[in-house]
Design a protein around this nucleic acid. Sequence first.
DNA 1: GCGTAGATGTTATACTATATCATCTATGAA
DNA 2: TTCATAGATGATATAGTATAACATCTACGC
Lengths: 163, 163
Amino acid sequence: MPIVSSKTAPATGFDRHNHRRCIQHGVRFATHACEQAGLQLTPARQRVLEILLSEHRAIGAYDILDRLREDGFNSQPPVAYRALDFLVQYGFAHKIERLNAFVACSMPEIQHAPAFLICRVCSVVAETHPELNRGALGKTARDAGFVMEQCVVEVEGVCPNCR
Amino acid sequence: MPIVSSKTAPATGFDRHNHRRCIQHGVRFATHACEQAGLQLTPARQRVLEILLSEHRAIGAYDILDRLREDGFNSQPPVAYRALDFLVQYGFAHKIERLNAFVACSMPEIQHAPAFLICRVCSVVAETHPELNRGALGKTARDAGFVMEQCVVEVEGVCPNCR
DNA sequence: GCGTAGATGTTATACTATATCATCTATGAA
DNA sequence: TTCATAGATGATATAGTATAACATCTACGC
């Protein structure tokens, strides 16, 4: 019998894991998806994705910019923001509004509205997909006649590793 | 038989209503609550609350600052941010992270974790309290061993009046 | 009188994000 | 080939959001 119910989505990011696979998988997936869709995963875009994939934490645009500079990329703000806009637009990354920062998507193969669990101690950000439409909030919205389009769900708290 | 189920919280803000009451009630409640708690609802704080209560929309700190200036208040940024920090800290207002802006709390008498329905057409922000702990997201967090402390839930879409 | 805590005044600065216009390159149509 | 177009990048400037830091004031209790 599984400890985690199969009816709710798990949160990915807190468990210890071979992180190189996250990076490899993320880049490989984006490469294929862009080829399929006729999108250009240019060097700057790929590098920003790699930077984001390098940790399960939210990274600010200006930190990304610093790392691009180290790698010899042009380092004016639009460089980072353009790459981030691209990655967010096509679902390879997400913005954490609460932190004004960005994370790589940890489940790009699944079409989903993300939700985030943010540890205030270690800053790790785990991602899940709660399908809020189905819960109380979805019912409230329907009852009110409100059509949900974009959802921001960001929960701050303490992760299992920091308790 | 009620159209809206009593099991889920309604969204307040989209329905037409006598808005003067929102302002009166909000200020009166805050006045009493501050007296009870030994907090100072100073002129600047009360004025910012009134400004926020003047519409069910999110207002940016610098717009608030402009209105304070018109009213003869000191208009340096810290004036607005300090008042907003106070109002947010004690639950009289909320920050909408997605918009970098603030709204008056529409149910200050209820201890709650708020969720917002934001109309992208008319910018009206309705507030509700979904108790996410009870739904799928709460289960995901518990299964992951994550302790939820602060929730940001902001849904963008189209309100009943704009459809 | 004196210390303290909370509030405000004041100046400066940090952090986040976008506008704008020029340039380059690949592609496909005329 | 030439041209037009779309997408990407280069480069400069600026807009928008938020806080640090330190001085001052005021009310209160001791």
